[in-house]
């Protein structure tokens, strides 16, 4: 880990539309191991928020417990953060979102936090289609307790102590698709060019957006024989496509002539631009997304990129028919029926 942040910044750092340079989106110094995949993901989150012109205080970052769940301290220091309890971030995020629908909710979790102790909350937050971005920093092991296998460790994968994992792994991306998540992507912490547009599109998605990011643990799961090591992942990665995210306000100039390119229009007119599409995969079709994942798996490949998106999405506020005004701004005047009504209630109980 780094102890001191260098004071030097490029004198001509570019400002975004809000007038902020990218360092405005940074957080505290990371206390994770040097080379941890999670730090790369944090850097991608910082870059995405900067490029998306997000007001940091209009975003709330939430997490559970574990190495991954520490990361919200390391980005967006002007955002409120909530490092909750192990595996329970989804419920806290649900309550927070219901209280104020106007903020962006950004959740960070790990494979232990989501696939084991928090599996119940993970599946139910998907089911409710809470409007949030949910990133799992997936390294297949428990870092803080020194390297035990997690539920996403692949069967046959060898950990640092030489033990081979006998259990089948839980595939969070296909699980999310199965449960009806409206935006599902997979990426690799080392592929910033893919991860940044995915995070941007996820934040722009008006429902539950899930990104499973393979993020090697340099200390406990980067050995030969591990299927979550940097080397293994780099050798076995296969992208559905390259991706770019074109925000709504940007002038769009794209060539629709090439057959290898697809544009997915988001709810607000923003575009997701996908190149190098494989023939048998349509990101708007759940079944084809599932097939693509299964095919890759059978070839021992890690499929990355946008896997599935449903543009016709209704989030939890829509389901509950809550008022457009954030609930936390309502006052006694709007909430309290008053003493006259109570007289009527009393009368009905006599």
């Amino acid at each position: 880990m780094t102890y001191v942040r260098p004071k030097f910044r490029h004198p001509e750092l570019q400002k975004n539309k809000l007038g902020y340079t990218v360092d405005y989106y940074e957080g505290a110094l990371s206390t994770l191991c040097a080379g941890c995949g999670h730090d790369s993901i944090s850097a991608s989150i910082i870059q995405s928020a900067y490029e998306m012109n997000i007001e940091p205080h209009k975003l709330a970052k939430l997490s559970g417990i574990g190495c991954s769940s520490k990361t919200p301290a390391y980005f967006l220091s002007n955002s409120h953060g909530f490092n909750s309890v192990h595996g329970r971030m989804p419920s806290v995020a649900t309550g927070a979102n219901l209280a104020n629908r106007d903020l962006i909710y950004f959740g960070v979790s790990g494979d232990g936090d989501s696939a084991s102790i928090g599996m119940g909350q993970f599946v139910h937050v998907i089911r409710r289609n809470l409007n949030m971005t949910y990133i799992v920093m997936n390294n297949g092991c428990y870092g803080l307790t020194k390297g035990q296998d997690s539920a996403t460790a692949d069967q046959g994968s060898k950990n640092k102590s030489g033990n081979v994992n006998p259990f089948d792994s839980i595939d969070l991306a296909s699980l999310a698709i199965e449960l009806g998540a409206s935006f599902v992507a997979q990426s690799f912490s080392g592929d910033k060019s893919q991860l940044v547009p995915l995070i941007k599109a996820a934040m722009n998605h008006p429902g539950f957006a899930f990104i499973n990011v393979i993020s090697p643990c340099v200390t406990f799961n980067n050995n030969v024989g591990s299927t979550k090591s940097y080397d293994y992942v780099r050798e076995h990665i296969e992208a559905t496509s390259t991706i770019d995210f074109v925000p709504q306000m940007q002038e769009i100039n794209v060539d629709y002539g090439q057959g290898s390119k697809k544009h997915v229009t988001m709810h607000d007119g923003s575009l997701i631009e996908l190149r190098k599409l494989s023939d048998d995969w349509d990101p708007l079709d759940r079944q084809s997304a599932m097939n693509a994942i299964m095919n890759s798996k059978s070839k021992n490949e890690i499929l990355t990129g946008l896997l599935y998106m449903n543009q016709d999405v209704k989030d939890l506020h829509h389901t509950l028919n809550t008022t457009d005004k954030p609930l936390n701004t309502l006052t006694k005047k709007e909430l309290c029926p008053g003493s006259e009504m109570l007289k009527g209630i009393n009368a009905g109980l006599r």
């Binding site: 939430l62 806290v92 309550g95 219901l98 209280a99 119940g120 409710r128 609930l327 936390n328």
Partner: peptide, 21 residues
Amino acid sequence: VQAEDELAAIGMAIGANWNGA
């Protein structure tokens, strides 16, 4: 919200209170 269990129920209540509702 009818939660999936009591853990989630109080988690939601805490999240909402944290956010001022």
